[in-house]
């Protein structure tokens, strides 16, 4: 991959589940370091797009290139991706530190203990001995984020990371993401908070890419979602 190669290049991307079309004809490119907000009503196709980018789904139509390669052909690129689904896949009976070390080992990192300690520090996880099942929602979200960052990915995908967080936790999440060098794509219904984190917005409606806006404010995004703005 050269410096000019887009991190993500989607061309007429589509995905169907049987007769239901979840995403159709979506075209966009993302460059390194961009912070992209994915906006849309429920069922608009946000999670499907993120799962396609995470390499968890294959496209039904069009093409997708991550770091210049097709993820279905060269799955090795998935190692450069961190993904946090709406319900982060954490083992609730494990302790925070042990879980992050486990994920680092799954990622094949040379020193899982060190990687776990570093990412815990970066994500403000101050109690690595705590059992995940006993954590507050916000703290658990941080653990979910940490598991996606443990290998220092170049592309970070977050599905509704602000769901259930209070305003202070959202602000802290924004600060954490601002400190990352990775390209970040996150979906959220909380438009005001999203505009503080992202500087580019992909607006989806019924599986279609309705708008690709830079530096939009929450009012503009809401108008787009309501279909009031051309």
């Amino acid at each position: 991959m050269t410096a000019a190669t887009p991190v993500v290049a989607a061309q007429a991307l589509g995905r169907s589940f049987g007769p239901r079309v979840a995403l159709r004809d979506v075209t966009f490119t993302l460059d390194a370091g961009e912070r992209v907000g994915l906006v849309g009503r429920n069922g608009a196709g946000k999670s499907t797009l993120l799962r396609l980018l995470a390499g968890l789904l294959d496209p039904s139509a069009g093409s997708l290139r991550l770091f210049g390669a097709q993820p279905t052909v060269a799955p090795g690129w998935r190692a450069q991706i961190g993904y946090v689904p709406e319900r982060p896949p954490v083992h609730e009976r494990m302790r925070v530190g042990a879980f992050l070390e486990h994920v680092a080992a799954l990622r094949g990192l040379a020193d899982p203990a060190r990687a776990a300690a570093e990412v815990a520090d970066r994500c403000g996880l101050t109690d690595p001995g705590a059992r995940i099942a006993t954590l507050s929602h916000g703290y658990r979200q941080r653990v979910g984020l940490a598991q996606a960052l443990v290998h220092r990915p170049q592309l970070l995908l977050l599905d509704e990371p602000t769901s259930g967080l209070d305003p202070v936790q959202v602000a802290e999440l924004g600060e954490l993401l601002a400190g990352l060098e990775a390209t970040v794509i996150l979906s959220s219904h909380r438009l005001v908070e999203l505009t503080r984190i992202a500087d580019r917005f992909l607006v989806l409606s019924a599986g279609n890419l309705l708008a690709d806006e830079r530096d939009a404010d929450a009012t503009r995004l809401e108008s787009l979602l309501r279909g009031e703005t051309p």
């Binding site: 995470a54 390499g55 968890l56 799955p75 998935r78 190692a79 991706i81 993904y83 689904p85 896949p89 954490v90 083992h91 994920v103 799954l106 990622r107 598991q147 996606a148």
Partner: peptide, 9 residues
């Protein structure tokens, strides 16, 4: 566990 393995490549 299955989702974690898939998302962890």
């Amino acid at each position: 566990a299955a989702l974690l393995w898939r998302t962890s490549a």
